[in-house]
Amino acid sequence: MTKRSTLAAPYQIFLVLFVVLPLVLILIYAFMDGNGGFTFSNFATFAGQPEAIKTFVYSIEVAVITTVLCLLLGYPAAYIMSNSQLNRSSITVILFILPMWINMLVRTLATVALFDFVRIPLGEGALIFGMVYNFLPFMIYPIYNILKKMDQSYIEAAQDLGASPRQVFFKVIIPLSMPGISSGVLMVFMPTISTFAIAELLTMNNIKLFGTTIQENINNGMWNYGAALALIMLVIIGITTVFADSSSNREEDAGGPI
């Protein structure tokens, strides 16, 4: 017994140092004033700043739009890739996954260069494009996984019971791929809400996202306020995780790494 648990020790130390401790520090800093006393003033400041709240709401909007677009583009892509009748080679799969091998910043810088080249002004459109481009594979992969593993006999059973191809898709394939969808939504929504590099690069720093606000505050030494903002964001992400979890609980083998 003791031998086995000592094997886990390095991981436990790692988790404590790099996951638990930072979280605790964020929590403590968020409720601390400049002199180290307990306070709610950081949250009050946030509530009192329409600008900050606007950024916050805007960030959620961008994240939601990105997630919806990724889902609308990613689901058909995953469906086509998983369907051996439509796609006979695994090359398509590799092509979709390939961009993930390249660093996100490099990809975004390339996007900026591309937009420059074709003379499309950077701004909100470019921001959404960049976000979707960067996070699309995270939507496709879990959905692809679950569609690939789906038992063909469910589809046959539905056809057998009188479902047209359309009805098979909406009444069987979509409901059965829900675990993949929620996992994909989570994997896109979570990083998009906190991203700041893409926004900075693709809007020439003209559009601010919540991630940018946090980064600026912490860069400027406003540790306590920054920690409070980070905490608010964590709560939002936490809520979406709980929602996604409850919808994917029905199927044990959800297709994603979450």
Binding site: D151, S153, E156, A157, G162, S164, V172, L176, R250
Partner: peptide, 17 residues
Amino acid sequence: FRRELNTVFQRYALFPQ
């Protein structure tokens, strides 16, 4: 889906949802 017959599948294929 337009044939007037129905099938009982080997592994049942009941819709889990």
